[in-house]
Design a protein around this nucleic acid. Structure first.
Lengths: 333, 333
DNA sequence: TTGTAAGCGTTATCAA
DNA sequence: TTGATAACGCTTACAA
């Protein structure tokens, strides 16, 4: 494979000149340029990105780190991140932590040299605030999802409290009188869950004649958890007539349990989820859910990261991304 | 950030010796090693992967190229590929073609220098055999999915004909008497669709008293296509009592149409899909589907690619991966 | 067992 | 406008 030097030799110029032509620099005489271009074509020259990166210090690679790419929510996010990064000339490398706290911690501490990335977008799962507070590295990092970092790192998030509040208001407006939530978490670092819980409680507190059902705590936010939690509610003496799940997979599991019990949705029980994963459009009935704008999250995170790479010392920023309630068949209209 | 040279200076040895320590080479005296390790720690040395790669010619990065990561099938594959690659010390960079033939062609022609990858796993969508036949590049590439490459490239695939045959046999055994397929394609390069069609036809041909419904051609293999195709079948005078869809998203769309018409599944019509995406487990009823083993595909592809990187000139190989029919509620048991 | 020094293929500095 | 030439940070003959 031809190198810059080979091309220079063939064209009878210096590597410097060839580099100028390749990178569209000014100060190249027309006649010289033509000769170089001919040589370029003759040798089918392709620049070695590695050498270029070593020299310039920019790799052109962004990391995207999530617990598990197989989960629809992360997959959609990844698709949009790749899209947004590609549009800006970056490639995206994906990594999965599977919630392994050690892997996550290592990432946070990563130095820019150790990594093959210029920076990373990171959706933490197990990590908590204290792990981030005394990180020594200056590796450009943008957090998505859990707001665990205080003001130590750039962050892209939605207003979870407001979203949960709105979803609960909708259920109340639809005439439901006993509303339970599935997806609460006890750990004090589970900020997102707490914010959503707050939103639900606030809406319930200010409504007349509406009771809270037995809110359900879960561990893993998957369909199994949702199934189990709904089992508790369905058999309960005070069965709620509406349930809000803190993500769509919980709702999918809950829905499965309701089918088994022949509970009519939304007639006997309405159901709302969070995330708007594709499963939610194809369940029966299709799920009403709080949708963050995936494209906006991705776009924002990529822009924030590229900005941070360009200005490692700048002030930490938070980016609020919009959400909306997508109303489908699992609630009344 | 400290370099090898800095460490060498601090430890009072040559860069060569530091390199030996870092890379666990033999021939380092215990006392020297200790001194170097102290310096390493003191300076918090992290090797520059870029420089290493430039020198060794290996990047440690595999490309994974699919039409769209947001599609569950590709997302699951990606998750497994990342897993398999990580286990072997590689990182995975993801790229999306969105079926853009130009992007796919460029990838195929990619030189190893132009790319930042050591090689790539590629699921083509628009590309055809002729594009691959005269590719000039020797860039290590393993194809997954469509078997478009003849014997020009390594390929990982399932026996689509057998899989479709088995699925159809199951429907016949369940007592269905008019069976249609959704997902046929006219283009002669759509090998997978043709093989599945062959499997269906073979099973129908050898069965007594079973008729073929009006097989449906589609364009994009998404839920919309499935919805439209099912519309044709439901209103037809010769409505089938079982339908086999060539992927799960087609089945999801078809199912939606059936719900709108209050057609009982599987009572009035049984439904089978392909791929076993997560949507299929959470539809109502859950979808019976042909599942390729995603982990096996990914593992095989990653191993094949790494093998190919190590031996660019070796004979082209095909890898057959197993499949099975996952029976759920959309068919009788 | 360790040091010296030559490259990997670029970009960038300094002259010319 | 172009040419030498020195980095970038590492690995690895070849010597010692």
């Amino acid at each position: 494979m031809a190198t810059l030097k080979d091309v220079a030799q063939l064209a009878g110029v210096s590597p410097r000149t060839v580099s100028n032509v390749v990178n569209d620099q000014p100060y190249v005489a027309g006649e010289t340029r033509a000769r170089v271009e001919a040589a370029l074509a003759a040798l089918d020259y392709r620049p070695n990105q590695l050498a270029k990166s070593l020299r310039t210090g920019k790799i052109g690679l962004l990391g995207f780190v999530v617990p598990d790419l197989a989960q629809s929510h992360f997959a959609r996010l990844a698709a949009e991140v790749v899209q947004a990064a590609t549009a800006r000339g970056y490639t995206v490398a994906v990594d999965q932590t599977h919630g392994d706290i050690e892997r996550e911690r290592r990432l946070i501490q990563l130095g820019p040299r150790g990594a093959m990335f210029d920076g990373a977008i990171f959706h933490p799962e197990a990590l908590r605030a204290e792990h981030i507070e005394h990180r020594e590295s200056e590796f450009p990092l943008v957090l998505v999802g859990e707001r665990i970092a205080g003001d130590h790192l750039d962050h892209v998030y939605i207003d979870d409290r407001a979203a949960a509040y709105e979803a609960t208001r909708k259920l109340i407006a639809d005439g439901h009188r006993r509303i339970a939530a599935i997806g609460l978490r006890r750990a004090d670092y589970a900020r997102t869950a707490h914010l959503r819980e707050e939103g639900v409680r606030a809406a319930l507190a200010e409504a007349e004649g509406v009771a809270a059902g037995h809110h359900q705590y879960v561990e893993r936010y998957d369909a199994e958890d949702g199934y189990e939690a709904m089992a508790n509610l369905v058999d309960s003496a005070e069965r709620p007539d509406a349930v809000i799940c803190f993500n769509d997979m919980l709702a999918m599991g809950a829905l499965r349990r309701l089918h088994e019990h022949d509970v009519d949705v939304p007639g006997d029980m309405a159901l709302v989820g969070f995330d708007d994963i594709t499963e939610a459009s194809f369940s029966f009935p299709p799920l009403t859910t709080v949708a963050a704008d995936h494209a906006e999250i991705a776009e924002t995170a990529v822009k924030a990261l590229i900005g941070r790479i360009g200005d490692p010392g700048g002030a930490v920023r938070e980016y609020l991304v919009s959400h909306r309630l997508v109303v489908r068949g699992s609630t009344r209209r």
